[in-house]
Structures are given as C-alpha cells and as structure tokens.
Design a protein around this nucleic acid. Structure first.
Lengths: 362, 362
DNA sequence: ATTAGCACTCGGAAAGAAAGAGTGCTAGCA
DNA sequence: TGCTAGCACTCTTTCTTTCCGAGTGCTAAT
C-alpha cells in the first residue's frame, strides 16, 4: 500500500496548501510545485482520492485532505519543523520564572502555548491516581469518631464524624476492618455502587456508617487527583474560517472552556515516541471534537506527576509547526519542573540544546 | 424635560421589545400594547427620536433605543424584577459551600453569574490599595542586606538583596530613612518615575540601591493589590445576534478573557444606591466596550475588601433581569464573606429575606 | 507514461425583481 | 386640539436568475 514518491509529494503539497489557504487546492497550482503537467496531477489526485486520502467538497472544486490523508501526512510525510531563534527565546523567557505555584503556572503555560500557536490551548498537570493505603478509626465518644486515611502519595486526610445516634468501640473496630479490606488500594474510579452495597451488606449493625465513610473516601481521592488546568485563547478559534459559524464555534468553545471534559479525553492510547500525540477529526472521542484536531505533548512534572499541554484547532491545523512548538515547550517544562530533559524524543533535546546558545540574543 | 406618561410607556415598550427580539420595533406592534393607533404612536416616536431617546437604523425600519434611551429606561422606567423561587434556590445552593478559597470561589461565582444571566460574567475581589507602613533594613554583611516592608494591611514582605559591590551600615541607615520618608503611605499607582528620581538625587552614595528597593516595593504593592478574578461564559456572547460577526465577537472576547483590562475599567464613578452600576455602550471607557453594556454589582468581601461581579453583553441587554440577579448574588456573597447583609439597597435585603423561606423547595 | 485539448459540471458572485415593513404626511373626525 | 385612517414613498431583505470561472474527467496525441 506504499505510495509512489510522486504521490507522496502531491499529498504533502495538498495538505500544506490547504493548511495555508483553507481553500481546496487544484491541479494547476500543484503543477508548478511538482514539476509536471496539471493533467498528470489530476490522474494522481484521482487515484489518491480513490485510496481515501483526498476528498472533493464537490465535483468541480479542488481536493482537500481526508482525515486519513492528514493522518498519513502527520505520521510519515511532514517534516519536523525547527523553531526560529525568536520563538525559542520567547518560550525560554516565559518559562524562566519558576517561582509560581502550580495553578498560576498552568494558566501561564496555557497562555504561552496559545500565543505561540495561535490556537486555543490548555495545560494541565495530572497527579497519578491515588488510593487509600490504610484507614484508621479513632473512637472519640459514643457519638463521635475520626476517620484517618493515609493515601498512597503519603498525604493524610481526616474527618471528624458526628452521629445522631450512638456507637461503641467494637462497631468502630468492625468498620475499620471493613474499610481496610474493601476500600484500600482502589482509586476513586474503581469505587462503585456495588462495592459500597456489598460492604454495607457485610456491615451488620454499622450499616448506616458505611455510606458516610465511603463518601469521605471518594472526596479525598477525587480531591487528590484533581488537576489544575489552564485554558487560554479559546476565542482564537474565531480566527479560523472553519469556525466562522458562530454555532459551531460556540459548541466547541464551550467544550474547551470546561476543563474537565478535556481532561476526560486525555488518558490516551499513548503518546508517540516523541512525546507528541495528534488526534485528527473523527479520531477524537468527544463528539464536540469530531471535526477538529488536537495536538498534545506530555512532560514530566516531577514527583511522578505527568503533565500535558495541547492545542485544539481545525483538522486543517498546522500540525508541523504546532508539534514543534509543543515539543519545545514540553521539554522546557520537564526541565523546569522535574529537572529532567525531554522524556523521550531526541529531537526535543536537540532543539533545546541548540537554543541554549541563542538565548541571550532574540 | 419630563416625558408624558404615554411617551414613557412607549419608550419602555420599545426598549423591552428590542431587548426581547433584537429587531427594531415598529409602530404597529406597539399600537396594541399602548392602546392607541399606530399613527399616534408614530407621532410620539418621532418626537422621542428628536429628543434623542430613539434611533432609526434606516428610514423604513422600526425604532431602536439610543444609549440615552437605555439610560432613561435603566434609571427611571424599568421595573425591578423579582427572581423566581427556582432562581433564588439555585443561587443559594451554589453559594452554600463556603469552604473554598478565594480564587476557586471567584471562579465559581463567575460561572454561577454567567449561567444565571446567560451572558459572559466576571467576579473579583479587590483589596483596597495598599501602601507600605514602614521599611526596615537589616544589614547582613557588606554585600547583603534585607529589606522588610510592613504593609498597611499588616502583611510583611521581605527580600534579601545581594550586591555586586559593598556597602556599610551607615549607607543602609540612610537608605532606610530615605524610603521611610518617600515611599511610605503611597500606593503603587502613586509611585512615579519622578519620585524615584528625586529620591535617587537625595541618595548620595547609595544612589544605586534606590532603584532596586523601589522596584521591590512596587512588586509588593502590586502583588498585594492583585485581585483574583473569575471569568466565565465568554463564549455565550456568540448567542447574541449582535456578535454573530466573528471579528466583533473575537475582539470583545479577547477583552473579556484578559481579566486585567476588566479590572482597570472598574473603580468607577460609583455604584448606584442599590449597589448596581450600569454602563451603557459609549459610556464605557474601554474602546472594546463602546457598543456593549456592562452591569455590575458590588459586595462586601469582609476585611475591608470590596468585590465586584458583573456581566458584559450587548447594549440590548436584559438590564432588569440581570440587575435583579446580580443584586441577589451580590447580597449572598456579602452574607457569605462578610457576614453582613446587603451593602446599600434595601431591595436586596427584601429579596433575600423573601427567599429564605423558599429555600427548601425549588 | 505523460501531456495537451476540450466539453462538462457545479458553486459562488453579481444583477435584477419582488415583497414587506415601516415611515411621514395629509385629511377627516371627535 | 388631539387622535385616527389612508396612502404614497423609501429602503432593506430576500429570492431568482444569470453568468462566470475554476476544476474535473476523458480522449487523443506524443
């Protein structure tokens, strides 16, 4: 299923032409670039269309890349783009001040990413899912006890629980055994109604307390996992012709503005080798993103935490430029937060190294 | 310059009609409402137009309120709107959980306000301008000293300053005297180049240190004054027909997304007696807001801090409904944060009291 | 295998026509 | 004097119609 060299060049030219102009690209324009006649191009394009890499908005328009076409372009065709000195300098400068707390930093990184790419951007740092390591129950008086939960990240949470009825020491001990048996080592997503039910069934006369403690547990875990997310530049969508329809723009901006939806969409099949993941149009899970694309990069935020930065844009996105920028920013963040160099790809490192010499200029 | 009763009714009807439909309203529609013939209405409207309360988009369209018309409507004509039980219940519920820190709270209040009004909204708590009460300089060694600034809000800030040259104790003492003389009691806005210059001139051989300490001072003051601001629902603008032009929408959304611009626009001539301020179209200072309106309410955030919530929308905004909602939310916030009741207007209190009986329903 | 030429298609811009809403004015009526 | 009815006029909006051109697919020639 390998394409000829010329087909590749044509597909590349179509993708990049369309990215640049947002207009279907026709055979005549390509003729010059490729170096053969428009008729030849037409034949080739016709085949590419049959293979599913190109599409025709209508009979007498030029061609437009299909999602599969973009995918091929992203995977094999596109050239890694180098940033200009000015760009690396701008990023380095922004990242220089590390004295911020994590939430402010995420907000700033979101801004930075958005302003560098001209697309809406988000940045977040995700803590690994947390579970409770052990529960302790402290009996205070017959109406009162304290739950203490030690989490896997060594945080300790506690809650004083005051009851409208009385319990005695043994009941609390039972409860302790129950929770240590059923609620340790599970993350908040794994706590289901049915676990709670079965625990309640096993609880005997401490029945009524299970729900209270369970909800406390879930609160702890959820709070520990919540990722601060910075979102910026949502309105930049309006620069893109594909979102000139206010309704489309509105729907997508809503989606973006709600950080939690983005986070849900995250934990992905995995990042590419270079720490970049591109999902194109229909590849996205969320309905709202079905005809947009997302490019994201991951970085090491230290302490076992992983972070993500990403941008959202039309399928006709400048993948190459965006990928390069995200990659560079992610590498910078890894350095900043974890002191490590780029997580995987060598390219990051190279770009980084290269820039360090230029830093003083720009 | 008082208008006849009928003129008032007509103006009110035009404003409310236009608010509801976004279309210029013609004489025929009003005829029913007002209870006289369309010709009469036309005469009246023509006079109202001459007085500057109405405008004609073009010769053969209906009338539209002018900014002056809106103003009159807001000041005298519009009826205070009561919230429904469902609305008050929703607001009360949202405000119930007070355990948040201020930044999260602002974000949530922004969301709440936006979702209640269907317009973009912001919420912020502004600390009163802070000044330095006194400076202390601690001599550490010949290259190092510490500046300690006690602010009027009793916060203490400090900075260790390391010099590439040496100073001795007396110089630091001089510096201390200088700063205590020139930089105490002034807010960050009042620190001008010229004050810094004149201090430098008076500084003698400590000349070079003045700029360093001055910039530290400004940093402190700015940081102390920075208000956490929550912005939400910017994309709701796109629901409004006047922002269907993506360029307009983009410009305004940009403005809104940048919290600092909004804050600058704030410290206003003053709130109305009921704690609500409405600025209509050209009344706004910021160029970006010249054909939008802003309704804002202030609340007491305790500890001498004042907070503001506001919404941005087209001049054709539902002033009455928005004002009622903001008023109610602001009153709730005052109660929540300062334990006080509404700052000024009695209406707030009344609405509030009224709702407290309904709280459990909704 | 490539290219030149040609007829055909289809969307989008431009031009023209018709519709409709609303005004302003004049004249008649209480 | 104030209100209403009627009518001619204005101006936008919308719908059609027309026209143009970019781009295609095919065929025949190199």
């Amino acid at each position: 299923m390998d394409l000829s060299e010329r087909k590749k060049r044509i597909l590349t030219a179509v993708v990049e032409g369309y990215i640049a102009t947002a207009e279907p690209v026709g055979s005549k324009h390509l003729a010059e670039q490729i170096g053969c006649s428009s008729a030849t191009i037409r034949n080739e394009m016709s085949e590419l269309t049959a293979m599913g890499y190109l599409e025709q908005p209508h009979t007498s328009a030029g061609r437009v890349p299909s999602p599969a076409g973009y995918r091929l372009y992203v995977n094999e065709l596109m050239e890694k783009q180098k940033l200009t000195e000015a760009e690396t300098a701008a990023i380095n400068e922004k990242l220089a001040r590390k004295d911020e707390q994590i939430e402010k930093l995420m907000a700033e990184v979101g801004q930075l990413t958005s302003s560098m790419t001209q697309y809406p951007a988000y940045a977040l740092t995700m803590k690994p899912p947390v579970a409770v390591k052990r529960f302790d129950f402290i009996y205070v008086d017959q109406n009162t006890f304290i739950v203490v939960a030690l989490l896997t990240d060594n945080m300790v949470k506690n809650k004083l629980i005051h009851l409208p009825f009385s319990v005695h020491q043994e009941q609390i001990t039972t409860l302790s055994a129950l929770f240590n048996a059923n609620f340790t080592g599970v993350t908040d997503r794994e706590i289901t109604e049915s676990i709670i039910r079965s625990t309640e069934r096993a609880a005997g006369d401490t029945y009524g307390l299970v729900a209270v403690v369970a909800s406390f547990t879930m609160e702890c875990l959820a709070a520990a996992r919540t990722a601060p997310v910075g979102i910026a530049g949502a309105s930049r969508l309006l620069n893109q012709p594909e979102y000139r329809d206010p309704d489309k723009a509105h729907a997508l901006m809503n989606f973006i503005a709600d950080g939690s939806r983005l986070v849900d969409d995250l934990p992905p099949a995995g990042m590419g080798a270079d720490g970049i993941r591109v999902t194109i149009g229909p590849e996205n899970l969320a309905e709202e993103l079905k005809d947009s694309s997302v490019v994201m990069a991951s970085y090491d935020a230290g302490d076992g935490m992983r972070g993500y930065i990403g941008v959202v844009g039309p399928t006709r996105m400048d993948y190459s430029g965006v990928a390069a920028k995200l990659s560079y920013i992610a590498a910078g963040l890894s350095r900043l937060l974890a002191g490590t160099d780029a997580p995987a790809g060598l390219d990051n490192k190279l770009v980084l190294k290269e820039s360090e010499h230029h830093e003083q200029e720009g």
